[in-house]
Design a protein around this nucleic acid. Structure first.
Length: 264
DNA sequence: AAACATAGCAACCGCATTTCC
DNA sequence: GGGAAATGCGGTTGCTATGTT
C-alpha cells in the first residue's frame, strides 16, 4: 500500500498560520476538543490537513505552552537528558513542563549543540581551533549532579560573606567572581534543580523562604553576617543565562547563634 | 545603504508506532 | 490477528529577522 501524502488534496493550505486560522482552531478545540485530528479541519472550517492542525495546536496554541527563554535550569536539564537519551526530544520534553519537543529540538540545535557533557559531568563549550580543523573543549562549569529530586543535601559553607551583606535587608545581589563560586557550589550540590520550595519542615539545613525573595518590603532581617555562616542561595528562574553569565541570584545568610534563633 | 551571511524558529515531510475495526 | 487509519516523532526545510562586511 502507498500512503497518501499529507495535504495531497488540492486546496489545502500550507505555510504559516494566520491569526484568523489560529482563532478558528482554538475556538473549535475549546468547544469540541481534538479527538479526531483528521476530521477536525473540515468540521472547524479550516483549509488545513489534520496533521498541520495538530502541530499548530501542540507546538503553539495550547494554553499550557510555556513561552520565552529557557531558564538555566531548563538548559541544564536538556543538556543532561540529551546526554542520557540522545535525540529523543519527546522524552526530553516530558521532563520540561510546558516545553514542546519541537521547541527543545530547535533550542538544542541553535544554542546547546555546542555544549557537551563529559563522563565526569563537566559541561564544556565546543570551540573550533585556530586553524578551524579541530574541535577542542573549553571548560564551561564544574561537575554538576543531575538528580536531587528526592532530598536536599545542602552543606554548610564557610565563605565569609560579610562584604556582600548590606543591612537592613540582610542580603544583596552580588555580581562578581564570588557569585560564581557560590553558584557553582550550589550546582555541585543540587545540579541546578530545586525540586520544590524548601521549607523548615523538609529542609534540614540552611533555611530560606521565597516570601523573603519576593517581598523585600516586609522582610525583617533574621540574618546578619558572621565570620562563618551557613547560606542557601535562591536562583532566579526567570533570569537569562548565556555565555557571559548574565544571571543573578541572592545569597541569604543565616546567622549561626543568632539571638533570634532559627530564621524561619 | 546594499548585499550577503547567519541565527532562530515555525512548519512540513515521511517513517514509525499505536489504535481501531 | 491483520490491515488500514490515525497519531506521534524526529529530521529537515525555508522564511524572517538580525548582524556583518
Amino acid at each position: 500500500m502507498v500512503r497518501a501524502p499529507c495535504c495531497e488534496k488540492l486546496g489545502l493550505k500550507k505555510g504559516p498560520w494566520t491569526t484568523e486560522e489560529d482563532e478558528i482552531l482554538i475556538s473549535y478545540i475549546n468547544k469540541h476538543g481534538h479527538s479526531n485530528w483528521r476530521a477536525l479541519p473540515k468540521l472547524a472550517g479550516l483549509l488545513r490537513c489534520g496533521k498541520s492542525c495538530r502541530l499548530r495546536w501542540i507546538n503553539y496554541l495550547r494554553p499550557d505552552i510555556k513561552r520565552g527563554n529557557f531558564t538555566p535550569e531548563e538548559q541544564n536539564t536538556v543538556l543532561h537528558l540529551h546526554e542520557k537519551l540522545g535525540n529523543r526530544w519527546s522524552a526530553i520534553a516530558a521532563q520540561l513542563p510546558g516545553r514542546t519537543d519541537n521547541e527543545i529540538k530547535n533550542f538544542w540545535h541553535t544554542h546547546l549543540k555546542k555544549r557537551v557533557v563529559n563522563k565526569q559531568g563537566h559541561v564544556y563549550e565546543k570551540q573550533k581551533s585556530a586553524d578551524d580543523s579541530v574541535i577542542v573543549e573549553q571548560p564551561k562549569s564544574k561537575p554538576q549532579k543531575l538528580d536531587c529530586s528526592n532530598h536536599y543535601e545542602f552543606p554548610s559553607y564557610s565563605f565569609d560573606l560579610s562584604p556582600f551583606i548590606d543591612s537592613p535587608t540582610g542580603y544583596k545581589e552580588i555580581e562578581n567572581e564570588q557569585h560564581v563560586e557560590v553558584f557553582e557550589a550550589f550546582h555541585q550540590t543540587c545540579g541546578g534543580h530545586w525540586p520544590e520550595e524548601p521549607s523548615a519542615e523538609n529542609f534540614n539545613g540552611p533555611v530560606f523562604n521565597s516570601s523573603v525573595v519576593n517581598d523585600e518590603e516586609q522582610h525583617q532581617p533574621p540574618f546578619r553576617a558572621m565570620d562563618s555562616v551557613e547560606f542557601g542561595c535562591y536562583y532566579n528562574n526567570g533570569a537569562k543565562m548565556d555565555d557571559s553569565m548574565e544571571f543573578w541570584y541572592r545569597v541569604f545568610v543565616k546567622a549561626g547563634g543568632s539571638p533570634n534563633g532559627p530564621a524561619f
